[in-house]
Simulated assay, not measured.
Amino acid sequence: MVRVIPGSGRSILGEGPLWSARENAVFWVDILGKRVNRLSLADDAVTGWDMPEPIGWVIERERGGFIAGLASGFVELDLDPLAIRPIVDPEPDVATNRMNDAKADAMGRIWAGTMPFSCEGDSGAFYRLDPNRSCTRVDGPYCIPNGPAIAPDADMMFHTDSARRTIYRMAINDDESLGARATHIVFPPEWGSPDGMTLDADGHLWVAHWGTGRVSRFDADGERERSVALPASQITSMTFAGPALDRMFVTSAADGVDEANAGALFEVDPGCRGLPTQQFGG
């Protein structure tokens, strides 16, 4: 089953889908369209908020509201009414970069990547925002960092450089540093490029295929176990949603393609359950 969500629009660069149990809703962003969107699972209503600059993602805060990744850095974000409060710019001297993708872990930390607007060169890096609001560069360089997908006990993550078509596996050490990048999966050209990712409750890795219109499920050894085709080529990310975490919502991008469903939000039947959404602890 694949469903195009009515009213989900045509995002230039849809990304960062997030399941909110407290709002019974799926949030996602249009990075280049500078917009945050919300799908209510109660009635399929779609609501949106315009942002002042490109926005890579939103992550819920335990105390309410969100942390967001704007081009200018990490911010606190409230939507009703709209309010933005800066936290820190991890790259104040790199005006050509922006935030791209991020996840929170079970320790309440956010792991977030930056990348060049041009999608060329290795000016990007990977950062950790701790609940005390300190920001640390933990890895780099990257061209197009995507994911990450983080284990439930926060001791391991998968992270991608889409420009290299490579998914890495990295340990999260007790001192909060990252272990060395180990190559986990390399996409052949006919698969497109790996984009956003998430882990399911069985420990399998779901990956969005940018350029070839699908999401795939990989087992612990990195072997592709399942693939679901979608009616748009530029698939960017996915999240499990719903009270049972058995629904999957998938984002896409319309940038540079002339396709009827490009940039829409999709729902697919994953045939499995996901993991609970983690929140920022600060």
Rank of each mutant, 00 (worst) to 15 (best):
V29G: 04
T198N: 09
A254G: 13
T236V: 09
G64A: 10
C135Q: 08
V207Q: 04
D78K: 12
N24A: 10
W206G: 08
A68E: 09
G179I: 05
G121N: 08
H209I: 00
T251W: 01
G48A: 15
D255P: 00
F74M: 08
S227A: 12
P188R: 00
G16T: 03
F266V: 03
D122R: 15
D44L: 04
N37A: 13
R35Y: 08
R169T: 01
V138D: 11
G211H: 04
D175P: 11
M248A: 14
V46D: 00
A71S: 14
L13Q: 01
I59L: 15
P92T: 10
G69Y: 03
R35L: 13
A149G: 07
A106I: 02
Y142I: 05
D255E: 14
V4R: 02
S134F: 05
A163T: 12
S216A: 14
V36N: 08
D80E: 15
A253P: 11
Q278E: 13
A253L: 05
F187P: 01
L205C: 08
G7L: 01
G281D: 10
I67F: 03
I12T: 13
T251N: 06
I84D: 02
D93G: 10
R35H: 10
N132P: 01
E60S: 07
G73R: 04
N173I: 08
R38F: 06
D43L: 01
